[in-house]
Amino acid sequence: MRMAYLFVSNVQHEEVAHRRGEVPSHRLFFAVELRELGHDVHLCPWRVPSWVPGAAQWWKVAQAIWCAVIQGRLDAVVCTHEAAANAPLLLKAMGVLRVPVVVLTVAATGEPYRADDLAGRVRRRLLREADRLCTFSSAQVRQLAEILGIDERRVSFVPLGVDTDFFRPRVGRPRLDYVLAVGTNEGKDYPTLVRALSPGERLVVVTDEDNISQARAVMSDQDVTFRSHVPISELREMYLECRVMVLPLRDIGISTGQTVLLENLAAGTPVVVSDIPAVADYVGGGANPVVVPPGDVAGLRRALQSVGSAGADDTTPPRSAKDSADLLAGLIRRETVRGSS
């Protein structure tokens, strides 16, 4: 199949970095694996100069126009995020873009898409134009169909897979005595983690400024180091050396925590994760990860104390990105067949 792959921002530098072995393939949302499966995957070559006001938004528009220009050579358009889908879905609603559009959703079950204001209604109206919507959580399939008022059969669960060559265990490597927590967005609950630390426990948190502010607000004398914008190659080393990875999550109805969870399971790192629907498809079947109720300070503290530093022997390996790409390709093909009939 011939497909255009649309992103929130220009990812050509990520493509180059992946070829150098510097970033995992799943940063490109299965584009690499689809190519390996024999599909012709195109990324937008157009650029918008950074000095142009609103360059990031104009680039999304340019990307959609590029799709419309080359659609005669395409079987489908794949949008890797709702924010990447707005412009092409508008063109589809106008009758300008006529090839099937498949959208990988991350936040479409969150509050902005449920809101009854003008922005919420516009978001829902545009997503209804998609031929196929995909979620990374089976719990979100029915939710998304109900939010948009569409047939549930137009929404599919695609289990998230990761680059299991980039992330893999290193047998015999000693682990250091610190707790690691990684992840951005409003789905993280670092205040609960800070409160759950035992005296003397060292914690390193890699996140954004908003989450750092929330965590600092509940701190007293805990030993916590905050970092931001850590390269993925360095994060991989931290995964392999920490005593345990902790993913304290809030159930806010969006995909959250899944990628970091799967990267660490692939690396053989002991993991403690909050029991929310977004990660339910990726836990169970082994002693790792340890699952605790969200917001449970005492339960999280007990889990941290129970996890050893030797590594996670009883871990079910996560799905590979190539397996996920194969499933996604089947869904895309179904839409191309439907569109041509």
Results as ranks from 00 to 15, higher is better:
Leu90Gly: 05
Leu97Ala: 08
Val96Met: 13
Ala93Phe: 10
Leu90Cys: 06
Arg114Asp: 14
Tyr113Ile: 03
Val77Trp: 11
Gly110Phe: 10
Pro112Val: 03
Val96Ile: 15
Thr105Val: 01
Thr109Leu: 12
Asp75Pro: 03
Arg73Pro: 03
Leu118His: 13
Ala83Asp: 14
Asp75Met: 08
Pro100His: 09
Val106His: 10
Asp116Glu: 15
Val77Phe: 05
Ala119Met: 10
Cys79Phe: 02
Leu90Ala: 13
Glu111Ser: 14
Gly120Tyr: 04
Thr105Cys: 12
Val106Met: 09
Ala84Met: 10
Asn86Ser: 09
Thr105Asp: 00
Val99Gln: 13
Tyr113Asn: 02
Glu82Gln: 11
Val77Ser: 13
Ala84Ser: 15
Ala119Leu: 14
Pro88Leu: 00
Leu91Met: 08
Pro88Trp: 00
Val78Gln: 06
Ala83Phe: 11
Val78Leu: 13
Ala119Val: 14
Asp75Ile: 05
Leu118Ile: 12
Leu74Glu: 05
Leu97Trp: 09
Ala87His: 04
Ala87Cys: 02
Ala107Tyr: 06
Gly110Ala: 10
Gly95Lys: 11
Val96Phe: 10
Thr80Lys: 09
Ala76Leu: 11
Ala93Gly: 12
Val96Arg: 11
Val103Glu: 06
Ala119Asp: 13
His81Trp: 14
Leu118Ala: 14
Leu89Trp: 03
Ala84Pro: 11
Thr80Glu: 14
His81Asp: 15
Leu90Glu: 03
Thr109Ile: 09
Gly120Ala: 04
Glu111Ala: 05
Ala76Asp: 12
Gly120Arg: 05
Lys92Val: 02
Leu91Asn: 05
Ala76Glu: 11
Asn86Leu: 07
Leu97Gly: 14
Glu111Trp: 13
Lys92Asn: 06
Ala87Gly: 02
Ala108Val: 01
His81Ser: 15
Leu97Cys: 12
Asp75Gln: 06
Ala84Thr: 13
Gly95Ile: 11
Val96Asn: 15
Lys92Ala: 05
Gly120Cys: 08
Val101His: 04
Leu104Ile: 02
Val78Pro: 01
Leu104Asn: 00
Ala85Phe: 07
Met94Gln: 13
His81Ile: 08
Leu104Arg: 00
Asp117Arg: 01
Lys92Gln: 14
Leu91Gly: 05
Asp117Leu: 04
Ala107Ser: 14
Cys79Ser: 04
Arg98Cys: 08
Gly120Pro: 10
Asp117His: 06
Val77Cys: 06
Lys92Ile: 04
Glu82Phe: 03
Ala83Gln: 15
Leu91Lys: 08
Ala84Tyr: 08
Asn86Ile: 05
